[in-house]
């Protein structure tokens, strides 16, 4: 949290009342915990989607969540910035800690939370607006009164899209290619200066070249942001992540370790069987 910063922005607080939070120097090469789940259980009606998951996700690293369809990895991702709040039958028990605060506490403002924990989805979903307005959208929502154009340029540069669109900022975001649209969505996600970026299969709708650009971008983003990515592509998880969490059927987190360890010598036979394709 950056309560110590004095930018011309609204408060970064997640909550509607003032709460002390620790300062966070992004230049420090530490890997403190950015997000932690404690005894997390999630239900859709009577069906349990997440089963007693506890995990600590380091800051400024890429953490991949992998597992077969229906294992709960996307549900877990969406718990982190309370996207599951929008699902009426969804019930969450346990804690998801971010910035020393349980994001499910009653005094946490989900909109403020999502400014700090941005999200990129499977299919690129730019608004039917100009490239500039797509990126500036979140800034306007939060009442940003700084130099919007400068922040747009900075965000597009961080998303490795600036050089391709700098002369057409007023063109529609929908006119871009699929890969460019996804990078535009990433620029939109990082414009409000989040701390965490959640990505739910961000390359599954892209061709290999566009996907590889996103992968390179994720690697760069991890210098500034904590990236948590759900992917069905195990080779992608192996290529881009520092830590890998393996969810298996029933919403259980079966193994969580350095990615190298998971893909070279996992502890759990079930994980080995899954990643080598012996079941799935």
């Amino acid at each position: 949290m950056s309560n110590t910063e004095t930018k011309t922005e609204p408060s970064d607080s997640l909550i509607t009342t003032d709460v002390e939070t620790e300062s966070n120097d992004r230049t420090a090469p530490s890997h403190r915990t950015a997000v932690a789940a404690r005894d997390l259980n999630v239900y859709y009606g009577d069906e349990q989607a997440i089963d007693d998951v506890s995990i600590e996700i380091p800051e400024k690293r890429v953490t991949a969540l992998i597992g077969p369809s229906g294992c709960g990895k996307s549900t877990f991702l969406r718990c982190i910035n309370r996207m599951n709040d929008m699902i009426e039958v969804c019930r969450v028990e346990g804690d998801v800690e971010f910035g020393g605060k349980n994001v499910y506490d009653a005094d946490v403002d989900p909109v403020a939370l999502r400014r700090k924990i941005g999200m990129v989805f499977q299919k690129p979903n730019p608004f039917p607006k100009s490239i500039r307005d797509n990126v500036a959208y979140g800034l306007k929502i939060q009442g940003f009164d700084g130099d919007v154009d400068a922040r747009v340029e900075e965000s597009l540069k961080s998303a490795a899209l600036w050089d391709e669109v700098k002369d057409q900022l007023d063109s529609s975001g929908l006119d871009l290619s699929g890969g460019q649209q996804q990078r535009l969505c990433i620029a939109r996600a990082i414009a409000p200066d989040p701390e965490v970026i959640l990505m739910d299969e961000p390359t599954s709708a892209l061709d290999p070249v566009a996907a590889s650009k996103i992968e390179d971008l994720i690697d760069d983003l991890a210098e500034e942001y904590t990236v948590i990515i759900v992917t069905h592509n195990m080779q992608q998880a192996a290529r881009i992540s520092d830590r890998t969490a393996v969810f298996l059927t029933g919403g259980r987190l079966v193994e969580y370790d350095d990615t190298t360890k998971i893909f070279e010598d996992p502890e759990e036979q079930r994980v080995e069987d899954y990643i080598t394709g012996k079941f799935g």
Binding site: Q235, I262, F263, D265, P266, V271, E272, I275, T276
Partner: peptide, 9 residues
């Protein structure tokens, strides 16, 4: 086939 884990070894 991009083998991993025991298969890779």
């Amino acid at each position: 086939q991009q083998p991993v884990a025991g298969d890779l070894r």
